[in-house]
């Protein structure tokens, strides 16, 4: 900052109109995101329930947080869920993208079909699947005599997370798919022609040419996806509401239910911790993607 003011150089004239673009969003962002976040962190050092009388309690909320098995379990669930989902979403979306960029019939209509889940709200998807898991699937299971399927998997503490993963995957594939299709279309055709002349089979082309050339897109999809899945909320609310028991409570769910349950300060501490972790992941993401782009 000081360096630039000291060295005299021709003043670059900035169009005033840019400030007009910048200021409203800056004001809104500060008022609705930055300021509440700072207030929230401030209250995480108190015993406030959001209003009324309160006292400073120092770090007690944080101490309680680290010894709370429910909070720990929600972190384990959320990170495990995000990791599994991100792998599943990317493998499936990539394979679909390869298929949908190949020379096949009805390519455009098929693409439209696969993108449909993107335009439906998460909570509606969750309620529809909730019905399928609780009623349709068990009936199929009973008819077919498959024991483990004849009861709703959402009612089984060991299996409920699979339901959440499947539905989230179904919902997240379109966005990932679109990015992969864009990436695949960006690969010039002559690379494949050259590979054909050299006698490389389709599989070798996929592994040796396609994969390395879309590597940047894979990194973006994996990191963006992981960050999004950490925020899992609406699908879980509609499917299991964190249950059975507390088997599928994500971190955001714990924060919201605690907050509405009058545990404001404590969940602000939880949110502050979660914020730090997500920032760390985002920084890591920036670092890795920067490295990739240099390749």
């Amino acid at each position: 900052m000081t360096a630039t003011t000291l060295t005299p150089r021709p003043k670059r004239k900035v169009e005033k109109i840019y400030y007009a673009f910048l200021v409203p969003s800056l004001v809104l962002f500060t008022l609705s995101i930055t300021l509440p976040a700072i207030i929230g962190i401030f209250f995480s050092f108190t015993n406030s329930i959001g209003f009324g009388d309160w006292d400073f309690v120092g770090l007690i909320n944080y101490v309680a947080l680290f010894s709370d098995p429910a909070v720990l379990a929600s972190y384990l669930f959320t990170f495990g869920f995000a990791a599994v989902t991100v792998v599943l979403v990317n493998v499936l979306a990539f394979l679909l993208a390869v298929g949908l960029t190949a020379k096949i019939r009805l390519k455009t209509s098929l693409r439209a079909v696969f993108v449909i889940p993107m335009v439906i709200s998460g909570i509606i998807i969750a309620y529809v699947f909730n019905f399928l898991f609780s009623n349709s699937l068990p009936e199929l299971g009973q008819a077919a005599g498959v024991g483990w399927l004849s009861e709703s998997i959402l009612a089984n503490p060991e299996l409920a997370w699979i339901g959440v993963v499947l539905v989230t995957t179904w919902q997240a594939i379109p966005g990932t798919l679109l990015i992969y299709i864009a990436g695949l279309l960006a690969i010039p055709g002559d690379v494949y022609e050259a590979a054909d002349l050299d006698g490389a089979g389709k599989f070798a082309q996929l592994v040796r040419i396609t994969l390395p050339l879309v590597a940047g897109y894979i990194v973006i999809n994996v990191l963006l996806g992981f960050k999004n899945f950490l925020n899992a909320y609406d699908v879980i609310v509609g499917l299991t509401n964190g249950g059975p028991g507390t088997a599928t409570r994500s971190i955001p769910m714990t924060i919201v239910t605690g907050f509405t349950g009058g545990d404001y300060a404590y969940q602000m501490a939880n949110a502050a911790m979660f914020f730090i972790i997500v920032v760390a992941i985002s920084l890591l993401q920036l670092r890795i993607t920067r490295g990739r782009n240099a390749l």
């Binding site: 964190g242 249950g243 028991g245 605690g258």
Partner: peptide, 10 residues
């Protein structure tokens, strides 16, 4: 804030 109902469901 304690998920009692979920524990009982469990």
């Amino acid at each position: 804030t304690i998920p009692t109902e979920n524990y009982i469901q469990g």
